[in-house]
Amino acid sequence: MNIKFEKNCLMGKGDIVIQYNCAKEAAQKALYNSIGSQISISVLDEDHRFKRISICDIQYIENIDGHCFLYTATDSYRSPFTFKQLHKKLKDVNFIQINNITLVNEENIDSVKILPECKRLVTIKSGERLLVSRSFKDSVKHLISK
């Protein structure tokens, strides 16, 4: 494996682009998990104290009555960020939007089931099932073909 650095002044301040060969997808996932475990986000715990959690631990994010909740395998947290802010922060790190109120960590998707009326049902590793709306069905299309 070769590592190559290229300067690109057109990229944003915090952007890093990693290109990989399609045949090395397992290596890409391992690298994502390694880097992702170093990236954390601020949340509020049940006692309303700020805490930082790794983005790799987040299974999905839900916008309920204008408040965002982040769900891990064992806990749920309230986010001080809006849904739009979280979507912008996480869309480039394997989080996909599956309906108007839900973002899912693609790495935690266990299966995708095709339902009538062009809908999809995503099952994440914890067993939780989330509905993909018709307007977001293309966001999971690449997972069905795997």
Rank of each mutant, 00 (worst) to 15 (best):
K24R: 10
A26S: 13
P116W: 02
S126I: 01
N2F: 05
K29E: 13
Y20R: 02
T82G: 05
N100M: 13
I39C: 10
Q59E: 14
D57N: 13
K137N: 07
L143F: 06
D65C: 14
V93R: 05
K24F: 08
R129G: 05
T72Y: 04
A26I: 07
L103I: 06
D15Y: 12
M11I: 12
K137R: 09
K137Q: 07
I3N: 04
N21R: 09
S145H: 13
F5T: 03
Q85M: 12
F81E: 07
K84G: 06
L121F: 01
V17W: 07
I35F: 06
E25P: 00
V132C: 14
R129W: 00
S42I: 13
C68W: 08
N21W: 02
K113E: 12
L86D: 02
S76Q: 15
Y60S: 08
K51W: 07
T82K: 03
E46W: 07
R134S: 09
S37W: 00
T74S: 13
Y20P: 00
K29W: 05
Q85L: 11
E6N: 12
N94D: 12
K89L: 11
D47R: 14
S145F: 06
I53N: 10
N108P: 01
I35M: 10
E6F: 10
R129T: 13
H67E: 14
R129V: 09
K91P: 01
G36C: 08
I16A: 09
H87M: 13
N63I: 08
S135Y: 11
L10G: 12
I39R: 05
K119T: 01
H48G: 04
S135N: 15
S126T: 06
V17Y: 12
I96K: 02
T72C: 02
D110K: 14
H142I: 01
L86C: 05
K113T: 10
L143E: 02
N99R: 10
E62F: 08
K7M: 12
V132W: 00
P80K: 11
I98C: 08
V140P: 04
R120S: 00
V112T: 06
Q28R: 09
H87Q: 15
R134P: 03
L90D: 08
Y32H: 10
S42C: 11
E128W: 02
S79K: 05
E6V: 10
I16R: 13
D110T: 04
F136G: 04
Y77Q: 09
L10H: 15
V122T: 03
V112G: 00
C68H: 05
E106Q: 15
T72W: 04
G66S: 12
S126W: 03
N99W: 10
I55K: 03
K125M: 09
N94A: 10
F81D: 12
S126F: 04
Q28F: 08
D110R: 13
L115G: 06
L143N: 01
I55G: 01
L130A: 04
S42K: 14
F5K: 09
G14A: 12
K13P: 11
G127E: 08
V93H: 09
Q97N: 03
L86W: 04
R49K: 15
N63P: 01
H67P: 01
I41K: 03
H67W: 08
N94I: 00
I41E: 01
S126K: 07
C9R: 15
I98F: 02
E117L: 11
T102P: 03
I98T: 03
